[in-house]
Design a protein around this nucleic acid. Sequence first.
DNA 1: CTCAATTACTTTGATAATCAAATTATATTT
DNA 2: AAATATAATTTGATTATCAAAGTAATTGAG
Lengths: 150, 150
Amino acid sequence: MSNHETVNEILVRLFANILDIEEKCLKIGEFFDLSITEMHVIDNIGFTTERTMSDTAKAVKVTSGTLTTAIDNLIKKGYVERRRSSEDRRVVKIRLTEKGKAAFKSHEDFHKDLVISALQRLNSHEEEVLIKVLSNIDVFFSEKYKFAGW
Amino acid sequence: MSNHETVNEILVRLFANILDIEEKCLKIGEFFDLSITEMHVIDNIGFTTERTMSDTAKAVKVTSGTLTTAIDNLIKKGYVERRRSSEDRRVVKIRLTEKGKAAFKSHEDFHKDLVISALQRLNSHEEEVLIKVLSNIDVFFSEKYKFAGW
DNA sequence: CTCAATTACTTTGATAATCAAATTATATTT
DNA sequence: AAATATAATTTGATTATCAAAGTAATTGAG
């Protein structure tokens, strides 16, 4: 098997596993009532004082209708607060509650832990190779993105 | 910025975009009537002479009920063939049609492009290092999160 | 050799995530 | 003041998914 095939195979498997692990870890943790999708919305809102629905929808790449229902659920579960802007009453501002912030931190920690674990056994030369490759992939995707249209 | 932060940052961005990009690339190509999920099923069936529903369901990590409906649709769209095994009549064997094989190849090309980009600017020594690094991470994840294989 | 248990798959009934299009309320422009 | 544009929500649909129930075929224990 060529290097290319090997790398492809491992990358595909890694990608599939990481998503799976993230989901499973979420389900057994404190914030088990959040789906991956909801966690990513929380992640995106982050610690910003307040942000609008439109900004958030654009950032997480869903329609505003989809975000409305996502936020409805997150409010029901106590992770997010919503209020109308007084400057422009069409605008709705959202932000994380304390519980939402806790979930954010927990998710952040999970990521940190994953990366630390993954890099633990690498010497600095190996780390550099890995970073080079990740950057290349990153560039590949931004190129693709450009033409994939938006 | 530390290596850890760099890796984390790139990984987060990569993960946020990868499915999205793959989806967009799919939609503008010849096989626009396939969803990402369906393409992954096709990818998994591959060029095997024939495989069973159970094997495939396990490999793509969905229940057999979910796979049944996925395969129903792929058959409707002409990508997959299904027949009962004559040795054991409980077993259903599936395989790609010619159209399915064409879709498989197209998806494979996308991945090849990705890997070629990823390996750009690496010399053969670095390629070896990369494979070692990726393999380690891969093994590490399957070990550490074995429990996630519930 | 038979029938209870197991296996392989499909069906059913439910939920979550998503979109496009219609709707509502507000702001801006002409 | 009326027409247009914007921000968000609602509506109606689709797709992916699961768990549990159902069906058909095979295996194995007595």
